[in-house]
Write a protein that binds this DNA or RNA. Structure first.
Lengths: 310, 310
DNA sequence: AATGGCAATATCTTTGAGGTATCGCCAAAT
DNA sequence: ATTTGGCGATACCTCAAAGATATTGCCATT
């Protein structure tokens, strides 16, 4: 049985007349008669009563037509749904990210993406850089925002683009002597109680701090450690010590906390966006497009991917 | 787009391989390639990724396939449903009947029909003979059980078959002097308080009573009237008078009520089954079949209708 | 560089969908 | 009673396209 048979049966039921139904279908009457006859033979039941007053469905015909109409609706919807999916209007995007990305690029990016693609289901997974990398390679994530480019087995099949630079800043209580200063020097940090990050991505941040503190990095041994930047800010605001963390901390201002630069300016690993090189899903492309609109200094790698949107 | 395209896409998704999918479909590989290509062109989106590891649906393909599978399910169900409807296994039967039919033939008939055709929706409408007739002609009923054959405009398009004979019997209280007698004579009814039916079908029953009572039918003028046979039996049992009604009353025995024949035996209009002559619905045929099994003395008219069950 | 597996392309065959002409049937009109 | 007209079915033909066979092109592996 073909969709044609369904369309013809539905048209015949609508017009209750072979000739007019055929005209409406753009064919002649004899082919319609034949197709309906073929259909009735295949179904094994008479579907229409041909009376002098018109052509009306039998009980079997009514049962058939109900299903036929639904089938035709599904067929029409199949094309529509496929088209929407192909344009990236529907679908799913699994995003892995480090917690601190929630401070700066993610809120704007997610808000804009949610507005532009309301029917795309966003799955957000906070995880470390290394887990993001593994999950990307395993196909369990579509994109990831990590601290520095992902490393490890299969990382060569990933495309990575820095989406923002970062450096170390300090946060102190507004009651602290350093409060009000635009910057503090490394010298001013020595022999002070420090608060630093201790998450899974600690090595990257700690490496930055070691560079910063140089010979005195032993001070880190006695530092207070916190799992995320919000805790660092909170502890610093309550006077526990001087918090050190990424400059994106400034996106989470808080009464009682004072942010200042640290001189010399010490870079931290870049925030990096990664995805599978062979992934050409339109939803991913749409997300990359949003990223580009939001992050002015993305690399040319994204442009390469966004150029041919076929 | 034709159902063929859907079947091919589903098969290709299942086998993830053009060659094997084609074999499973019973065609060669090149035609399958072409049909899928045609489909992708019509939908306007690539539905499958051809990789070295196999053929996998794209996001658009997944969306398409979900609809395609449902459409194919509907198409398969269309034939099944039509077949069941054609065999009278599903559908609807609207039955009009006079209240007293609930005493004798209907309980058995409905029980048996409900067991044999559990998926047929029975719509039961208690109504008078004349309303049944009108409703049958208007196509608002499929069958009717009436007192005597239906009359009136359009009745010539109906087929009517007597399904049981009937005559007048009496019902008295067990405390009544007549209780225990197998029969009472007309003479014994004279000058006794009588209870008779007064429903819309009264004329038919009253006509029978008038024949019965002959010259003394004026006694009917002072009779107690009741709307249905249950009330007649109840009133008689409580000693209000002698109830007169159809012999089918005996199907509703009741403590305190005594049924007896009336001599001479006086016929009442037959219980008649009617339906539209042009109605060949399989559900109706099934119902007529059940009627025939339950009512031994149905006429040959039903046999005519049940012989060619095509 | 050679081999092999797989999908795409080229070309031909054949099925069957659709067109035209006509028939048969029945109801309404004469 | 005969005729006319409308409608669906039948007969026959045509041609588009579904499908078969043979071959090519492209990688990935050897």
């Amino acid at each position: 049985m073909e969709a044609r048979h369904l369309r013809y049966a539905v048209a015949l039921a609508e017009h209750a007349h072979f000739g007019r139904a055929a005209t409406a279908l753009g064919i002649a009457q004899p082919p319609l008669s034949k197709q309906i006859a073929d259909l009735e033979r295949e179904v094994g039941a008479r579907l229409f009563d041909r009376t002098r007053q018109g052509v009306f469905p039998t009980a079997a015909g009514e049962a058939f037509l109900a299903r036929a109409r639904r089938a035709l609706d599904e067929i029409a919807a199949a094309s529509v749904d496929a088209g929407r999916a192909a344009r990236g209007e529907t679908g799913r995007l699994r995003l892995g990210f480090i917690a601190s990305a929630l401070l700066d690029p993610l809120p704007d990016v997610l808000r804009r993406f949610g507005r532009e693609r309301p029917d795309v289901r966003l799955e957000l997974h906070e995880m470390s850089t290394s887990r993001s990398s593994t999950a990307l390679v395993a196909g369990e994530l579509d994109v990831a925002i990590t601290l520095g480019p992902p490393r490890g087995a299969g990382a060569e099949h990933l495309v990575s683009v820095p989406i923002g630079h970062d450096h170390v800043i300090a946060v102190v209580s507004t009651a602290h002597p350093y409060a009000g200063q635009p910057a503090v020097s490394v010298d001013q940090l020595r022999r002070q109680p420090l608060i630093v990050s201790a998450g899974e991505d600690e090595p990257a941040v700690v490496a930055g701090l070691r560079i910063l503190l140089g010979a005195d990095s032993s001070a880190l041994g006695g530092a207070t450690v916190a799992r995320d930047v919000h805790t660092i800010i909170g502890l610093a605001a309550s006077g526990v010590g001087i918090g050190l963390g990424p400059s994106r901390m400034k996106a989470a201002p808080r009464p009682g906390a004072w942010f200042c630069e640290v001189t010399p300016r010490t870079p931290l690993p870049d925030l990096v966006l990664s995805f599978a090189a062979r992934d050409h899903s339109p939803v991913l492309s749409a997300f990359l497009d949003t990223i580009r609109k939001n992050c002015p200094d993305v690399g040319a790698a994204l442009d390469d991917r966004l150029r041919p949107p076929a």
